[in-house]
Write a protein that binds this DNA or RNA. Sequence first.
DNA 1: CATCATTGTTGTCATTGACAACTTTGGGCG
DNA 2: CGCCCAAAGTTGTCAATGACAACAATGATG
Lengths: 200, 200
Amino acid sequence: MLAGMADRRYHHGDLRAALLDSAERTLSERGPSALSLRELAREAGVSHAAPGRHFKDKQALLDALALSGFQRLRAVLDAAGQGAPDTAAYLLALARAYTDFALSNAALLDLMYARKHDSDISDQLAEAVGDMLDVVLSAIAEGQRTGEITAGDPGAIAFTVASTLHGFASFSANNTVEHVDESLREVVRLLMTGLSPRAA
Amino acid sequence: MLAGMADRRYHHGDLRAALLDSAERTLSERGPSALSLRELAREAGVSHAAPGRHFKDKQALLDALALSGFQRLRAVLDAAGQGAPDTAAYLLALARAYTDFALSNAALLDLMYARKHDSDISDQLAEAVGDMLDVVLSAIAEGQRTGEITAGDPGAIAFTVASTLHGFASFSANNTVEHVDESLREVVRLLMTGLSPRAA
DNA sequence: CATCATTGTTGTCATTGACAACTTTGGGCG
DNA sequence: CGCCCAAAGTTGTCAATGACAACAATGATG
C-alpha cells in the first residue's frame, strides 16, 4: 500500500531508464512479442503515451536497448580478459564470456544483431560494435607482440575470431550445441591450430 | 481485367504457398515489422481470416518461413560445393554461398535464427539446421580423406567452420564488413592455417 | 447424389502504436 | 521573488492488427 507512494509524482524522475529496465526484463522473460510500449508504461505507473516523450518510436526503444546491450557486452568481454596468463587463455575467456552473455541474454542478442535499426542510431550502433570488436583486437595484438599469434593484419585476425565467437554463441543460444563448454574449448583450440594438418 | 480471373474462385487453390511467398517478399522488401497476416490475405485476394486456416498463428507462419529458409540455404550450400577442386576451395565456396544468402535474405536469416519459435516446430527446425550443417560436415570428412584437413572429430571441426561462416555472414549482413569477398577469403585462409604461428 | 470435412467469409473484440491537444511541473531568467 | 516556458505527463482518439467465433461455400468421397 505505502510502498508505491514515490510513484505518484507527476514527473517520474527517470522514466527513460525505468522503461529500458522494464523492457529488458520483459524481453528476457517473455520474449520480444510480449514487448509493448503501453504495458511498459503501465508497469512504470505512467500513462500510455508517456513513453513517447522518451522514445519517438517503439523501434527507438529497441534501438536503445540494442545499444546498451553492446555496451554491456563490451564491458563483460573487457572484464573477462583480465589476468589471462596467455593469449590462448585470453581468447578462451572471451569466448566463454561471449557465450555466457548470449545464453543469458538470448532475446537481447537477437535484437542487437537485428537488421532493422533506425538509420539515425545505426552510427552509434556501429561504433558500439566496433568498440566490442576492439576488445578482441587488443587480445590479438597482444598475442602478436608475445609471438603467440601469427603475423598479419591484426584487424583481419580479430574479425575472424569475432566471427567464430559470434557464430558459436548464436548456435549455442539456439540449443544447437550439446556440451557448450566442451565444444567451446574445442572451437578455440581449432581456431588456434587451424584446419590444415600441421607438419609437426 | 481478365488477368485476375483465376483469383475469384472461392477456394484459392494453394493459399498456403501464396501466403508464404508473399510473406517472404514483404519480409525482404519492407522488413519484418511490415508483415501482417491481414495484408498478406489482401495480397492473396482472400478475406482477413483466411490465413488462419493454414497457420494457427502469425508465429506459425514465421516458423514455416524459417523452416523453408533453412531448406533453401541447405540447397544453396549443396550446390555451391559441387566441382570444387580441393577442400580449401570447397570451404571458400560454402562461405561465399552462405554469405550471399545472408546478404540477399538478411531479414529471413534473422527469422531463421530468431529464438522465438514455437516448440512444436523446433524439432523440424533443429533437423533442418542439422541437415544444413551436414553439408559442411561432408566437406570436412572429404578433406580428412584426402589429407587436407587435420584429424579429429569431423563434427567438431565442421561445427567450428559453421560457426565462423555464420558469424561472418551475420556481421556482413549488418554492414560491419567493408570488402566482403576479400574479408571472406582472408577468414577462410586463417581458419585453415590457424592463429598460432606455424613452425615452417 | 447426399454428406461433411476443408477452406473461406463476415463480424467482432481487445490491444496496440501513433498522434494531437491539453496540463502540470519546476528550473532559469529578469 | 515571481513569471515564463520547455520538458515531461495526461487524456482522447484512430486505424490497424491478431485472434476467435459463427456461418457458408465447395468439392471429394462414399
